[in-house]
């Protein structure tokens, strides 16, 4: 059936996927590789934090307050004699957990709403976009302050009451309430950019012939969105997520710096910077250590995001 000469085009190599192609382009970009290495390093530090810290991050040792970096305390100690390196490592955990959870939730909301708005159009699109614009118009700092100010006290009081009533130690732990409020308020304000991005992508993909072809095959809308539209929109989304992770870390630090994020004694780069700022003329290392790590993380994510952008949109670069 096939003309014999066509056989010449069959090669035995396994097919090269679009993703492997993108990987190759990413690895040729030195800055992106550096960013990726730093991100992976910080992620490993966050993951294995409890095994890496030389000291407990909460233990105070008043005999060694405000020490400059030494072999015993690589990043020195703070005003309560706590090991700064251990606290920075735990701050990394905080930053990653917040960034990953917030970005995941924001991306899930954004992709779902954006894809639905873009695919169905009409009134549904207008309603969702109206809601998105409204969310975007809320100043993020204000929202977080409001949520913290209004919810934190009653929730903590309720937890305390539950503890008094049941003596269940679960209610004694207030750290996760803290996290929940920070996650929740940040996720609530971070999804609109993803929704807009995905909607724009879907609008351009929806009219492509392969989507019409898929509809002509009788596939359901759900299947078409999930297998034909979203996967084709994922390139710009990955770039945006990589940048978004960095942004979420900075945001978490900013909130903690202002005292509306993660509460002490849970270490966060933000509240460490805030503490260090008060005494930096005398003990610059207390400011330098968390600030340097925060800077490193931000730079790494933005290099990686740039590299991913070039790798996934090869036509846009060069």
């Amino acid at each position: 059936m096939a003309p014999a000469n066509l056989t010449a085009f069959v090669d035995e190599d396994p097919p090269v996927s679009l993703w492997r192609d993108a990987w190759h382009r990413l690895f040729r970009n030195k800055l992106a590789v550096a960013g990726l290495v730093i991100v992976i390093f910080l992620a490993l530090v966050a993951m294995f934090g409890p095994w890496l810290t030389p000291y407990d991050f909460l233990t105070q040792n008043l005999e060694v307050r405000n020490q400059a970096p030494s072999l015993a305390h690589l990043f020195g100690t703070d005003d309560l004699g706590r090991d700064v390196l251990s606290r920075v490592i735990y701050g990394t955990r905080t930053a990653f957990v917040v960034a990953i959870v917030v970005t995941t939730v924001a991306v899930a909301i954004g992709v779902a709403l954006g894809a639905i708005a873009g695919y169905y159009g009409g009134l549904l699109d207008r309603t969702i976009m109206w809601f998105t614009d409204m969310t975007m118009s809320v100043p993020n700092l204000l929202l977080v302050v409001v949520i913290n100010a209004s919810l934190k006290t009653p929730v903590t009081a309720w937890m305390e009451a539950q503890y008094q009533a049941t003596l269940n130690p679960f209610y004694r732990q207030t750290v996760w309430v803290d996290f929940l409020l920070v996650f929740g308020s940040m996720a609530l304000i971070s999804w609109p950019p993803y929704a807009r991005l995905v909607r724009a992508q879907v609008l351009s993909i929806r009219g492509r012939p392969y989507v019409t072809a898929a509809r002509a095959l009788g596939l359901t809308n759900r299947l078409i969105i999930m297998r034909y539209i979203v996967p084709n929109a994922v390139g710009p989304l990955i770039v945006s997520v990589s940048a978004g992770l960095g942004t979420a870390m900075v945001l978490e630090s900013a909130f903690s710096f202002l005292g509306v994020g993660v509460n002490p004694p849970t270490p966060s780069w933000g509240n460490m910077i805030s503490d260090g700022l008060r005494v930096w003329q005398h003990y610059p290392h207390l400011l330098a250590a968390p600030a340097a790590v925060l800077g490193l993380a931000t730079v790494a994510f933005s290099f990686l995001g740039d590299g991913l952008n070039d790798a996934l949109n090869p036509r846009g670069s060069k």
């Binding site: 097919p15 012939p209 392969y210 019409t212 072809a213």
Partner: peptide
């Protein structure tokens, strides 16, 4: 069954 005009764009590029 449908066969479309442009084979370059009528197949989903990210699916085998």
């Amino acid at each position: 069954g449908f066969v479309f005009q442009d084979p370059m764009t009528s197949l989903n590029p990210v699916m085998r």
